[in-house]
């Protein structure tokens, strides 16, 4: 009964994967037929030494790091806040979580046009109203803009997971700590944070896997520009394979992306595996 799933997933994994690896060793361009000769590591060489690769790697790191920083810290904040007694907690929680369900193209375009547009966007109008020069978000700070947009989309995810973890914290533990003379900060550092540590790790690992593949948000806002200012690894591979039709180069990039994602995946799988035993 398991076999249909196994066969499908195996096929889904092995066929494209081996093709990617195979293509990555060919000179293979869709517009200039070259007979697809075997060229060894050439594609990797060119891909890795291309200045846009270095830019893309840095951008990827900044994006993933920045978004993680914002969402994890913000998520802890929201989780702590929502865990406190208040009226209408359900409604507030729904408002906080809603952005996660907005499709990436919508959120990116809405932020780009309605908020970050220097003339008609709300940020632009506020800046002008206060007498400042409005910022051209997509032109001047494209990377930061994307970080902000994607953070808005993923902050709900971090919040939801950390809030769930927060709720499993034994209230008596906190009261015991209070009786032991621990103030608010000590309780947070010694009780709450260690309790959340596992959930935070999971948030970081899962988000990293998804954030390495940010694509739609870049496509509809900056197209990776200006220049390569907001091109990440995923977008760079997309550009070489589907815009420049360089299958060999794109595949080499794909292999590199897979290796990077696997480094994160190994840690994540370990945590899942441990939990499966428990």
């Amino acid at each position: 009964m398991i076999s249909p799933s196994v066969i499908l997933l195996l096929g889904w994994m092995i066929i494209p994967l081996s093709l990617t690896i195979y293509f990555s060793f060919l000179r293979y361009n869709l517009i200039t037929p070259t007979g697809n000769p075997f060229v060894g590591w050439e594609n990797y060489y060119w891909f890795l030494t291309d200045p846009s690769f270095k830019a893309a790697m840095i951008n990827t790191l900044v994006m993933v790091g920045g978004i993680l920083l914002i969402t994890v810290i913000g998520g802890i904040g929201f989780a702590l806040l929502l865990d406190r007694p208040m009226w209408g907690q359900g409604i507030i929680r729904i408002m906080v979580i809603a952005p996660f369900f907005v499709m990436p193209t919508v959120s990116a375009l809405v932020w780009k046009n309605m908020f970050m547009n220097p003339v008609n966007g709300i940020f632009g109008r506020i800046a002008t109203g206060l007498g400042f020069e409005p910022i051209d978000f997509m032109g001047q700070i494209p990377l930061l803009s994307i970080v902000l947009i994607v953070s808005w989309m993923w902050l709900p995810f971090a919040t939801l997971i950390l809030f769930t973890a927060m709720q499993s914290l034994d209230q008596e533990q906190l009261e015991a700590a209070e009786m032991d003379g621990a103030g608010w900060t000590s309780r947070f550092i010694f009780i709450v944070l260690p309790h959340l540590a596992r959930a935070i790790t999971v948030v970081i690992l899962i988000q990293t896997i998804f954030l390495l593949s940010i694509f739609a948000e870049i496509l509809v806002t900056t197209n990776g520009g200006p220049g390569t200012a907001s091109t990440n690894l995923t977008y760079l591979i997309y550009v070489s394979s589907l815009l420049q039709f360089d299958v060999g180069m794109g595949s080499a990039g794909g292999v590199i992306a897979i290796i990077l994602a696997n480094i994160v995946a190994i840690f994540l799988m370990r945590m899942i595996g441990k939990n499966l035993d428990a």
Binding site: L9, P16, T20, T234, G254, L276, D277
Partner: peptide, 26 residues
């Protein structure tokens, strides 16, 4: 069973862009 399950999950960790080219060509 556990290994099979873990392996199935691991396929989800594969970045889509890594297989973009072959899927597109197929």
């Amino acid at each position: 069973t556990k290994n099979v399950l873990m392996w199935m999950l691991s396929t989800k960790m594969l970045p889509p862009v890594g297989v973009l080219v072959p899927i597109y060509l197929i």
